[in-house]
Design a protein around this nucleic acid. Sequence first.
DNA 1: TATTGTTATACTCTATAACTATA
DNA 2: TATAGTTATAGAGTATAACAATA
Lengths: 149, 149
Amino acid sequence: MPATLRLDRFLPYRLSVASNAVSTRISNAYRRRFGLKIAEWRLIAILAEHDRVTPARLGEATRMDKITVSRAAAALVERGLVAADANPADGRSHFLSLTGDGRALYAEIAPVALAVEGEMFDALSRDERALLDALLRRVEASAMRGEQE
Amino acid sequence: MPATLRLDRFLPYRLSVASNAVSTRISNAYRRRFGLKIAEWRLIAILAEHDRVTPARLGEATRMDKITVSRAAAALVERGLVAADANPADGRSHFLSLTGDGRALYAEIAPVALAVEGEMFDALSRDERALLDALLRRVEASAMRGEQE
DNA sequence: TATTGTTATACTCTATAACTATA
DNA sequence: TATAGTTATAGAGTATAACAATA
């Protein structure tokens, strides 16, 4: 690392700028085409992979806090894309699942998500994408480890 | 890229999660120790590198829009960290510079910024950091190219 | 007319705290 | 008492539009 500070070479800055550029584009695509916010899209993605998931587990899987999960889930239930079933083992919680409409919407979104990702990351080879994924996971783990400071 | 979508392997998701973890930690560090928001910190960093910069050029250098620059600059002027001089060549614009207090604060922040960056990215070797920097720049360029869609 | 910068406004995202209902 | 989830509120980030002053 440089001993002197230059914003242009400061990794937190580079990470933030790249992430904002990608997030802005993704969020425009989802909102315009499907009326979904990113938090809502993430819940749908997890529910398409694993059915009957509690809000707590959705929070772990999406790295979002319980407030964000609660609001996103309420919006999806309101739209009829997600249904809530009682959890017999714990009356405080419940299971969330995609409805038929939710599955149909997911079937529309998934190809769009992959296409948009493809456009944005097509400057990178398959190996470079895997490398970026691995580097980002290590940075994330390292940043979270010291988060309480 | 996988033909099927898995949130956990979706690069925009990985990028967002890593960036949020880093940004949260950095923003806590700056706010608690120096009372600065990230936008304000970025202006200080650029003004420490280049003196007498117009708001428009600050916006280019920090990748922030003119509204964000304007508000951050106003806050720094209010605190006496930044001074504005008339621009003889264009009365609509002005030059911003760090004051003595601004330079003194920068001298305190810079080592802290480098130390926090060091902690968060110490899981990566010097080469890996350079690689991450380069990959992020390419992703950014690629994401911005299609932003108008 | 076009451009630099400010102000007004609003929407999203995130975080803290208070609350409810169950355990 | 502790936990799962909701609601209330506010701070921060970002975007659009309207505006003032100057080119």
